[in-house]
C-alpha cells in the first residue's frame, strides 16, 4: 500500500493540474476557444481513434522519426567509431564534423526543401541530420574515454583485436553511447515536429495544422499531447536500454 502510494507520488502534480484545468474550462473561466478542456481533448482522441486516422497519423509520424533516426544514428555511430579508434580518421574528419555540428539543422529547412522538395525525403533528411551529431559526439567521446589502464591490461592478456573491441572498448564506451541515443531521440521528435509543419498530408503535424484551420482546438491540443507521449515513450525505451545494458554499473545494480 505504502509502496504503491509512493509510486504514485510523482503523478499527483500533473493530475492536479489536469483537474484544475478541467474545472477552469468547464466553469468558463478559460474560454474553450483558447484552450479546450482535457475531457474535450480525450474525446477528440477517441473519435479520431475510432475513425482509424489517428493510428494512421501516429504511425506515419513514427515511421518518419525512426527512419531518420536510424539513418542519422548509424552514420553518427560509424563515424564516431572510426574517429574514436583510428587517429588518421579522426585527423581527417573530426574538425569538419565539428564545424557542421555548429549549424542548427532546422535552419536548413529552406535549403532542404529546395533539395528534396516537400515530400518524405526532406523530413527524414532533417531528422537524420539532427540525430547524427549527438550520436557521433557521444560515441567518439565514449571510445576516447575508455580507461587506458583497461586497454593496457587487455594487451598483457594478448586479446585479439576483435575481442578487445567487444569486451573492452565497446562496453567501455556504451554508457556514453546510450547518453547519445537518449539525446538523439529527443532531437528526433523535436525535429519531426518542426519538419511536419512543412506541407503535409499525413502525420500528427498534419492533423494539428489541419485542425488549426478549422479552429478545432481540441485536436490541436491532442496533437501536442501525442508528441509529448511519443517523446515520453522513446525516453522510456532509452532508460530501459540503459538499465538493460548497464546492469553492471553501480548506478543500476539491483540487489539480487
Amino acid at each position: 500500500m505504502r509502496k504503491s502510494l509512493n509510486a504514485m507520488l510523482p503523478f499527483t502534480v500533473p493530475a492536479l493540474v489536469v483537474i484544475v484545468w478541467q474545472i477552469l474550462g468547464q466553469s468558463g473561466l478559460i474560454s474553450t476557444r483558447i484552450l479546450p478542456t482535457p475531457v474535450a481533448v480525450v474525446e477528440a482522441g477517441i473519435q479520431l481513434g475510432k475513425q482509424g486516422i489517428l493510428w494512421q497519423y501516429i504511425w506515419s509520424s513514427t515511421e518518419r522519426a525512426l527512419a531518420g533516426f536510424l539513418i542519422g544514428g548509424s552514420v553518427g555511430f560509424v563515424l564516431g567509431l572510426l574517429n574514436g579508434l583510428y587517429r588518421i580518421s579522426q585527423r581527417l574528419t573530426d574538425t569538419s564534423i565539428q564545424m557542421l555540428r555548429t549549424i542548427p539543422h532546422l535552419a536548413l529547412i529552406p535549403l532542404v526543401i529546395v533539395w528534396f522538395g516537400v515530400g518524405e525525403e526532406a523530413k527524414i533528411f532533417l531528422v537524420a541530420l539532427g540525430s547524427v551529431f549527438p550520436i557521433y559526439v557521444n560515441t567518439f567521446f565514449g571510445i576516447k574515454s575508455v580507461d587506458s589502464d583497461l586497454i593496457e591490461m587487455a594487451k598483457v592478456y594478448r586479446l585479439p583485436w576483435l575481442k578487445l573491441f567487444w569486451k573492452v572498448i565497446l562496453p567501455g564506451a556504451l554508457p556514453s553511447i546510450l547518453v547519445g541515443i537518449r539525446y538523439a531521440l529527443g532531437v528526433m521528435w523535436m525535429t519531426l515536429i518542426v519538419a511536419e509543419t512543412i506541407s503535409e498530408n499525413s502525420g500528427i503535424g498534419y492533423m494539428a495544422m489541419n485542425a488549426e484551420e478549422f479552429m478545432q482546438m481540441n485536436v490541436v491540443v491532442l496533437g501536442i499531447v501525442l508528441y509529448a507521449l511519443l517523446g515520453k515513450i522513446s525516453d522510456w525505451i532509452a532508460t530501459t536500454m540503459e538499465r538493460r545494458f548497464l546492469r553492471w554499473h553501480p548506478n543500476y545494480l539491483s540487489n539480487h
Binding site: L150, K155, V168, P171, W248
Partner: peptide, 28 residues
C-alpha cells in the same frame, strides 16, 4: 612485445566492470 607466459598484476585490479567475476578471470 608481450610474452605469452608473463602476466602482470597492477596496483589497481583493472577488472572489467561489465564482466562477471568469472568472465574477468577467463579473459585471457
Amino acid at each position: 612485445g608481450i610474452h605469452p607466459d608473463i602476466r602482470v598484476m597492477f596496483q589497481e585490479s583493472r577488472l572489467l566492470p561489465w564482466l562477471k567475476v568469472i568472465d574477468n578471470v577467463a579473459i585471457g
